[in-house]
Design a protein around this nucleic acid. Structure first.
Lengths: 182, 182
DNA sequence: ATAGTATGTTACCGGTCGGTAACATTTAGT
DNA sequence: ACTAAATGTTACCGACCGGTAACATACTAT
Protein backbone atom coordinates (compact mmCIF):
# COMPACT_ATOMS: atom_id res chain seq x y z
CA UNK A 1 0.00 0.00 0.00
CA UNK A 2 1.92 2.96 -1.31
CA UNK A 3 -0.89 5.29 -0.31
CA UNK A 4 0.53 5.17 3.18
CA UNK A 5 3.37 7.44 2.10
CA UNK A 6 0.83 10.08 1.20
CA UNK A 7 -0.94 9.73 4.53
CA UNK A 8 2.34 10.12 6.32
CA UNK A 9 3.68 13.02 4.29
CA UNK A 10 0.56 15.08 3.70
CA UNK A 11 -1.56 14.01 6.60
CA UNK A 12 -4.58 11.74 6.54
CA UNK A 13 -7.09 14.51 6.11
CA UNK A 14 -4.95 16.26 3.57
CA UNK A 15 -5.11 13.40 1.11
CA UNK A 16 -8.19 12.80 -0.99
CA UNK A 17 -9.40 9.42 -2.05
CA UNK A 18 -8.60 10.27 -5.64
CA UNK A 19 -4.96 10.88 -4.77
CA UNK A 20 -4.86 7.63 -2.85
CA UNK A 21 -6.16 5.75 -5.84
CA UNK A 22 -3.59 7.37 -8.08
CA UNK A 23 -0.80 6.47 -5.69
CA UNK A 24 -2.02 2.88 -5.72
CA UNK A 25 -2.01 3.04 -9.54
CA UNK A 26 -5.70 2.48 -9.81
CA UNK A 27 -8.83 4.58 -9.53
CA UNK A 28 -11.40 5.61 -7.01
CA UNK A 29 -14.04 3.13 -8.10
CA UNK A 30 -11.82 0.10 -7.78
CA UNK A 31 -10.69 1.36 -4.41
CA UNK A 32 -14.26 1.49 -3.18
CA UNK A 33 -14.77 -2.09 -4.31
CA UNK A 34 -12.17 -3.19 -1.79
CA UNK A 35 -12.74 -0.70 1.01
CA UNK A 36 -16.15 0.44 1.99
CA UNK A 37 -15.03 3.85 3.18
CA UNK A 38 -12.02 6.08 3.57
CA UNK A 39 -12.10 5.45 7.29
CA UNK A 40 -11.79 1.74 6.75
CA UNK A 41 -8.94 2.38 4.36
CA UNK A 42 -7.18 4.43 6.99
CA UNK A 43 -7.78 1.71 9.51
CA UNK A 44 -6.31 -0.90 7.20
CA UNK A 45 -3.25 1.27 6.69
CA UNK A 46 -2.83 1.61 10.44
CA UNK A 47 -3.25 -2.12 10.83
CA UNK A 48 -0.46 -2.63 8.31
CA UNK A 49 1.93 -0.40 10.23
CA UNK A 50 1.11 -2.17 13.45
CA UNK A 51 1.54 -5.59 11.88
CA UNK A 52 4.94 -4.51 10.66
CA UNK A 53 5.94 -3.43 14.14
CA UNK A 54 4.77 -6.66 15.67
CA UNK A 55 6.78 -8.48 13.07
CA UNK A 56 9.84 -6.55 14.12
CA UNK A 57 9.27 -7.54 17.71
CA UNK A 58 9.16 -11.15 16.66
CA UNK A 59 12.51 -10.65 14.96
CA UNK A 60 13.86 -9.00 18.06
CA UNK A 61 12.67 -11.83 20.21
CA UNK A 62 14.13 -14.45 17.88
CA UNK A 63 17.47 -12.69 17.61
CA UNK A 64 17.94 -12.20 21.34
CA UNK A 65 16.14 -15.18 22.77
CA UNK A 66 16.22 -15.10 26.54
CA UNK A 67 18.13 -11.83 26.47
CA UNK A 68 15.69 -9.06 27.35
CA UNK A 69 18.47 -6.52 27.70
CA UNK A 70 19.64 -7.27 24.20
CA UNK A 71 16.11 -6.87 22.94
CA UNK A 72 15.76 -3.49 24.56
CA UNK A 73 19.06 -2.27 23.20
CA UNK A 74 18.36 -3.54 19.72
CA UNK A 75 14.95 -1.95 19.87
CA UNK A 76 16.50 1.44 20.54
CA UNK A 77 19.00 0.92 17.76
CA UNK A 78 16.32 0.08 15.26
CA UNK A 79 14.31 3.07 16.32
CA UNK A 80 17.37 5.26 15.88
CA UNK A 81 17.91 3.85 12.40
CA UNK A 82 14.28 4.44 11.62
CA UNK A 83 14.58 8.02 12.83
CA UNK A 84 17.52 8.74 10.61
CA UNK A 85 15.55 8.10 7.43
CA UNK A 86 12.55 10.13 8.48
CA UNK A 87 13.46 13.79 8.21
CA UNK A 88 10.77 16.39 8.92
CA UNK A 89 7.59 14.42 9.50
CA UNK A 90 7.01 12.67 12.82
CA UNK A 91 5.72 9.24 13.73
CA UNK A 92 2.97 7.88 11.51
CA UNK A 93 0.95 6.50 14.38
CA UNK A 94 1.47 9.55 16.52
CA UNK A 95 0.27 11.80 13.73
CA UNK A 96 -2.70 9.58 13.07
CA UNK A 97 -3.64 9.91 16.70
CA UNK A 98 -3.59 13.66 16.35
CA UNK A 99 -5.55 13.63 13.13
CA UNK A 100 -8.33 11.33 14.31
CA UNK A 101 -9.74 12.93 17.42
CA UNK A 102 -12.96 10.95 17.36
CA UNK A 103 -12.55 8.34 20.11
CA UNK A 104 -14.84 5.99 18.22
CA UNK A 105 -12.81 5.99 15.06
CA UNK A 106 -11.90 2.35 14.31
CA UNK A 107 -8.30 3.25 13.52
CA UNK A 108 -7.99 4.97 16.85
CA UNK A 109 -9.23 1.93 18.68
CA UNK A 110 -6.80 -0.30 16.83
CA UNK A 111 -3.95 2.01 17.69
CA UNK A 112 -4.90 2.20 21.32
CA UNK A 113 -4.96 -1.57 21.64
CA UNK A 114 -1.58 -1.72 19.98
CA UNK A 115 -0.10 0.86 22.32
CA UNK A 116 -1.39 -1.04 25.30
CA UNK A 117 0.15 -4.25 23.99
CA UNK A 118 3.43 -2.47 23.29
CA UNK A 119 3.52 -1.06 26.77
CA UNK A 120 2.79 -4.42 28.37
CA UNK A 121 5.52 -5.98 26.30
CA UNK A 122 8.09 -3.47 27.46
CA UNK A 123 7.02 -3.90 31.06
CA UNK A 124 7.45 -7.64 30.66
CA UNK A 125 10.90 -7.13 29.17
CA UNK A 126 11.91 -4.84 32.00
CA UNK A 127 10.69 -7.40 34.48
CA UNK A 128 12.65 -10.14 32.75
CA UNK A 129 15.73 -7.92 32.67
CA UNK A 130 15.50 -7.58 36.42
CA UNK A 131 14.85 -3.86 36.59
CA UNK A 132 14.07 -2.83 40.12
CA UNK A 133 10.90 -0.98 39.15
CA UNK A 134 9.80 -2.43 35.82
CA UNK A 135 6.83 -0.13 35.40
CA UNK A 136 8.97 2.89 36.00
CA UNK A 137 11.66 1.81 33.57
CA UNK A 138 9.15 0.73 30.98
CA UNK A 139 7.42 4.08 31.11
CA UNK A 140 10.77 5.75 30.74
CA UNK A 141 11.57 3.71 27.66
CA UNK A 142 8.19 4.42 26.14
CA UNK A 143 8.42 8.12 26.85
CA UNK A 144 11.81 8.42 25.27
CA UNK A 145 11.01 6.38 22.21
CA UNK A 146 7.77 8.24 21.64
CA UNK A 147 9.34 11.58 22.32
CA UNK A 148 12.28 10.96 20.04
CA UNK A 149 10.03 11.26 17.01
CA UNK A 150 8.53 14.62 17.76
CA UNK A 151 11.74 15.90 19.27
CA UNK A 152 13.87 15.04 16.30
CA UNK A 153 12.06 17.67 14.28
CA UNK A 154 13.95 20.42 16.06
CA UNK A 155 17.26 18.87 16.97
CA UNK A 156 18.07 16.62 14.09
CA UNK A 157 17.08 13.01 13.90
CA UNK A 158 20.53 11.49 13.83
CA UNK A 159 21.64 13.16 17.04
CA UNK A 160 18.45 12.21 18.80
CA UNK A 161 18.85 8.65 17.61
CA UNK A 162 22.40 8.50 18.92
CA UNK A 163 21.43 9.82 22.30
CA UNK A 164 18.51 7.48 22.46
CA UNK A 165 20.77 4.49 21.95
CA UNK A 166 23.25 5.84 24.46
CA UNK A 167 20.76 6.34 27.22
CA UNK A 168 19.18 2.93 26.74
CA UNK A 169 22.64 1.39 26.89
CA UNK A 170 23.32 3.28 30.09
CA UNK A 171 20.07 2.21 31.67
CA UNK A 172 20.76 -1.40 30.86
CA UNK A 173 24.30 -1.09 32.15
CA UNK A 174 23.19 0.58 35.37
CA UNK A 175 20.64 -2.11 35.93
CA UNK A 176 23.28 -4.78 35.43
CA UNK A 177 25.58 -3.17 37.99
CA UNK A 178 22.78 -2.71 40.46
CA UNK A 179 21.80 -6.34 40.13
CA UNK A 180 25.42 -7.39 40.63
CA UNK A 181 25.62 -5.23 43.72
CA UNK A 182 22.65 -6.88 45.36
CA UNK B 1 -9.42 32.69 22.78
CA UNK B 2 -11.77 29.90 23.74
CA UNK B 3 -11.70 28.56 20.21
CA UNK B 4 -8.42 26.93 21.12
CA UNK B 5 -10.27 24.31 23.14
CA UNK B 6 -12.04 23.23 19.98
CA UNK B 7 -8.80 23.04 18.06
CA UNK B 8 -7.31 20.91 20.75
CA UNK B 9 -10.25 18.61 21.28
CA UNK B 10 -11.53 18.14 17.74
CA UNK B 11 -8.40 18.83 15.76
CA UNK B 12 -7.61 21.90 13.73
CA UNK B 13 -9.00 20.55 10.50
CA UNK B 14 -12.03 19.13 12.21
CA UNK B 15 -13.26 22.52 13.32
CA UNK B 16 -14.98 24.86 10.92
CA UNK B 17 -14.71 28.61 11.06
CA UNK B 18 -18.37 28.81 11.97
CA UNK B 19 -17.83 26.69 15.05
CA UNK B 20 -14.85 28.81 16.00
CA UNK B 21 -16.93 31.94 15.78
CA UNK B 22 -19.64 30.41 17.93
CA UNK B 23 -17.10 29.36 20.54
CA UNK B 24 -15.80 32.90 20.58
CA UNK B 25 -19.39 34.12 21.04
CA UNK B 26 -19.39 36.01 17.80
CA UNK B 27 -19.91 35.20 14.14
CA UNK B 28 -17.92 34.35 11.07
CA UNK B 29 -18.01 37.81 9.56
CA UNK B 30 -16.61 39.54 12.60
CA UNK B 31 -13.96 36.88 12.82
CA UNK B 32 -12.83 37.60 9.28
CA UNK B 33 -12.58 41.29 10.12
CA UNK B 34 -9.84 40.46 12.61
CA UNK B 35 -8.14 37.51 10.91
CA UNK B 36 -7.64 37.39 7.23
CA UNK B 37 -7.79 33.62 6.99
CA UNK B 38 -8.26 30.49 9.01
CA UNK B 39 -4.55 29.81 8.71
CA UNK B 40 -3.71 33.10 10.31
CA UNK B 41 -6.20 32.34 13.04
CA UNK B 42 -4.52 29.03 13.69
CA UNK B 43 -1.17 30.76 13.75
CA UNK B 44 -2.40 33.28 16.27
CA UNK B 45 -3.70 30.50 18.46
CA UNK B 46 -0.34 28.76 18.29
CA UNK B 47 1.40 32.02 19.12
CA UNK B 48 -0.81 32.32 22.19
CA UNK B 49 0.14 28.88 23.45
CA UNK B 50 3.79 29.61 22.90
CA UNK B 51 3.56 32.96 24.64
CA UNK B 52 1.98 31.23 27.60
CA UNK B 53 4.83 28.74 27.76
CA UNK B 54 7.44 31.46 27.55
CA UNK B 55 5.64 33.20 30.37
CA UNK B 56 5.87 30.06 32.45
CA UNK B 57 9.59 29.92 31.82
CA UNK B 58 9.89 33.45 33.07
CA UNK B 59 8.10 32.39 36.22
CA UNK B 60 10.37 29.42 36.56
CA UNK B 61 13.41 31.58 36.15
CA UNK B 62 12.17 34.10 38.68
CA UNK B 63 11.24 31.48 41.23
CA UNK B 64 14.53 29.62 41.05
CA UNK B 65 16.95 32.35 40.21
CA UNK B 66 20.47 31.01 39.81
CA UNK B 67 19.20 27.49 40.50
CA UNK B 68 19.04 25.66 37.17
CA UNK B 69 18.43 22.33 38.87
CA UNK B 70 15.42 23.75 40.63
CA UNK B 71 14.14 25.09 37.35
CA UNK B 72 14.44 21.73 35.68
CA UNK B 73 12.70 19.95 38.53
CA UNK B 74 9.92 22.48 38.72
CA UNK B 75 9.51 22.27 34.98
CA UNK B 76 8.92 18.53 35.20
CA UNK B 77 6.48 19.06 38.05
CA UNK B 78 4.47 21.58 36.12
CA UNK B 79 4.42 19.35 33.11
CA UNK B 80 3.17 16.49 35.27
CA UNK B 81 0.44 18.70 36.68
CA UNK B 82 -0.47 19.75 33.18
CA UNK B 83 -0.63 16.14 32.09
CA UNK B 84 -2.99 15.19 34.87
CA UNK B 85 -5.69 17.53 33.62
CA UNK B 86 -5.40 16.50 30.01
CA UNK B 87 -7.00 13.10 29.67
CA UNK B 88 -7.23 11.55 26.18
CA UNK B 89 -5.96 14.17 23.78
CA UNK B 90 -2.23 14.80 23.43
CA UNK B 91 -0.14 17.94 23.31
CA UNK B 92 -1.68 20.85 21.48
CA UNK B 93 1.52 21.81 19.71
CA UNK B 94 2.41 18.24 18.91
CA UNK B 95 -1.00 17.67 17.36
CA UNK B 96 -0.77 20.89 15.43
CA UNK B 97 2.50 19.69 13.99
CA UNK B 98 0.81 16.55 12.82
CA UNK B 99 -2.15 18.38 11.39
CA UNK B 100 -0.19 20.97 9.44
CA UNK B 101 2.14 19.02 7.19
CA UNK B 102 2.84 21.92 4.86
CA UNK B 103 6.35 23.07 5.79
CA UNK B 104 5.47 26.59 4.66
CA UNK B 105 2.51 26.95 6.95
CA UNK B 106 3.12 30.02 9.11
CA UNK B 107 1.99 28.24 12.27
CA UNK B 108 4.46 25.49 11.59
CA UNK B 109 7.29 27.95 11.22
CA UNK B 110 6.35 29.65 14.46
CA UNK B 111 6.28 26.33 16.24
CA UNK B 112 9.61 25.26 14.86
CA UNK B 113 11.25 28.45 16.03
CA UNK B 114 9.73 27.95 19.43
CA UNK B 115 10.95 24.39 19.68
CA UNK B 116 14.45 25.48 18.76
CA UNK B 117 14.35 28.17 21.43
CA UNK B 118 13.03 25.71 23.99
CA UNK B 119 15.76 23.25 23.18
CA UNK B 120 18.47 25.88 23.44
CA UNK B 121 17.08 26.98 26.76
CA UNK B 122 17.23 23.48 28.18
CA UNK B 123 20.75 23.01 26.89
CA UNK B 124 21.70 26.25 28.59
CA UNK B 125 20.10 25.09 31.82
CA UNK B 126 21.91 21.77 31.67
CA UNK B 127 25.16 23.58 31.09
CA UNK B 128 24.50 25.85 34.04
CA UNK B 129 23.60 22.86 36.20
CA UNK B 130 26.97 21.36 35.39
CA UNK B 131 25.80 18.30 33.53
CA UNK B 132 28.73 16.50 32.02
CA UNK B 133 27.21 16.35 28.54
CA UNK B 134 24.63 19.14 28.42
CA UNK B 135 23.45 18.34 24.91
CA UNK B 136 22.88 14.74 25.82
CA UNK B 137 20.98 15.54 29.00
CA UNK B 138 18.97 18.25 27.32
CA UNK B 139 17.90 15.91 24.55
CA UNK B 140 16.92 13.40 27.18
CA UNK B 141 14.78 15.92 28.97
CA UNK B 142 13.15 17.02 25.76
CA UNK B 143 12.46 13.50 24.62
CA UNK B 144 10.84 12.55 27.87
CA UNK B 145 8.74 15.65 28.18
CA UNK B 146 7.57 15.38 24.59
CA UNK B 147 6.99 11.67 24.86
CA UNK B 148 5.06 11.93 28.09
CA UNK B 149 2.15 13.52 26.24
CA UNK B 150 1.66 10.88 23.61
CA UNK B 151 2.57 8.10 25.99
CA UNK B 152 0.07 9.09 28.64
CA UNK B 153 -2.73 8.12 26.28
CA UNK B 154 -2.07 4.45 26.91
CA UNK B 155 -0.68 4.32 30.43
CA UNK B 156 -2.57 6.98 32.28
CA UNK B 157 -1.44 10.52 32.60
CA UNK B 158 -1.01 10.62 36.36
CA UNK B 159 1.39 7.68 36.43
CA UNK B 160 3.40 9.07 33.57
CA UNK B 161 3.57 12.41 35.29
CA UNK B 162 4.80 10.82 38.51
CA UNK B 163 7.50 8.88 36.74
CA UNK B 164 8.52 11.91 34.78
CA UNK B 165 9.08 13.88 37.97
CA UNK B 166 10.91 10.96 39.53
CA UNK B 167 13.33 10.50 36.70
CA UNK B 168 14.14 14.19 36.45
CA UNK B 169 14.79 14.23 40.18
CA UNK B 170 17.08 11.25 39.79
CA UNK B 171 18.99 12.81 36.92
CA UNK B 172 19.51 15.99 38.89
CA UNK B 173 20.58 14.01 41.94
CA UNK B 174 22.98 11.86 39.93
CA UNK B 175 24.51 14.94 38.42
CA UNK B 176 24.97 16.48 41.86
CA UNK B 177 26.75 13.40 43.13
CA UNK B 178 28.94 13.16 40.07
CA UNK B 179 29.95 16.77 40.43
CA UNK B 180 30.74 16.22 44.09
CA UNK B 181 32.88 13.23 43.17
CA UNK B 182 35.03 15.22 40.77
C1' DA C 1 -14.92 -17.75 -29.05
C1' DT C 2 -17.64 -16.91 -25.18
C1' DA C 3 -19.05 -15.98 -20.77
C1' DG C 4 -18.08 -14.05 -16.54
C1' DT C 5 -15.41 -11.32 -13.63
C1' DA C 6 -12.38 -7.59 -12.40
C1' DT C 7 -10.97 -3.05 -13.66
C1' DG C 8 -11.34 1.54 -15.73
C1' DT C 9 -14.00 5.97 -17.10
C1' DT C 10 -17.01 9.56 -16.68
C1' DA C 11 -20.22 12.06 -14.72
C1' DC C 12 -22.64 13.16 -11.07
C1' DC C 13 -24.82 13.96 -6.04
C1' DG C 14 -24.96 15.96 -1.54
C1' DG C 15 -22.54 18.05 1.83
C1' DT C 16 -19.12 20.81 3.95
C1' DC C 17 -15.99 24.44 4.16
C1' DG C 18 -13.39 28.79 3.59
C1' DG C 19 -14.38 33.21 2.30
C1' DT C 20 -17.21 37.40 0.64
C1' DA C 21 -21.01 40.79 -0.39
C1' DA C 22 -24.76 43.48 1.00
C1' DC C 23 -27.40 45.04 4.27
C1' DA C 24 -29.31 45.50 9.14
C1' DT C 25 -28.37 46.35 13.84
C1' DT C 26 -26.15 47.78 17.83
C1' DT C 27 -22.74 50.42 20.37
C1' DA C 28 -20.10 54.48 21.69
C1' DG C 29 -18.47 59.29 21.44
C1' DT C 30 -19.74 63.91 21.18
C1' DA D 1 -29.92 63.18 19.25
C1' DC D 2 -26.68 62.37 15.61
C1' DT D 3 -22.92 60.29 13.64
C1' DA D 4 -19.51 56.92 12.89
C1' DA D 5 -17.66 52.80 13.84
C1' DA D 6 -18.16 48.10 15.17
C1' DT D 7 -20.85 43.99 15.13
C1' DG D 8 -24.50 40.87 13.55
C1' DT D 9 -27.43 38.45 9.79
C1' DT D 10 -28.35 36.23 5.74
C1' DA D 11 -27.38 34.52 1.70
C1' DC D 12 -24.38 33.18 -1.38
C1' DC D 13 -20.02 31.49 -4.30
C1' DG D 14 -16.62 28.29 -5.74
C1' DA D 15 -13.91 24.60 -4.56
C1' DC D 16 -13.19 20.30 -2.76
C1' DC D 17 -14.37 15.79 -1.05
C1' DG D 18 -16.45 11.25 -0.02
C1' DG D 19 -19.22 8.19 -2.25
C1' DT D 20 -22.26 6.14 -6.13
C1' DA D 21 -24.41 4.93 -10.68
C1' DA D 22 -24.04 3.53 -15.26
C1' DC D 23 -21.54 2.08 -18.64
C1' DA D 24 -17.24 0.68 -21.15
C1' DT D 25 -13.15 -1.98 -21.37
C1' DA D 26 -9.77 -5.53 -20.31
C1' DC D 27 -8.64 -9.93 -18.55
C1' DT D 28 -9.19 -15.03 -17.63
C1' DA D 29 -10.86 -19.65 -17.77
C1' DT D 30 -13.01 -23.08 -20.02
Amino acid sequence: MAAGDLFHKQGIRGVGVEAIAEAAQTNKMTLYRYFESKDELITEWVRGIIAHKEEEWKDLNAKHRGDPEGQLRDWSQRTAAHLREMEERGSALGNAFAELPDPNHPARRVMKEHKLRAHKRVVRLCKAAGFQDPHFSANLFMMMLEGAHSCGQCVGMSQIGEHLVQVVDRMVENNRQQRAGR
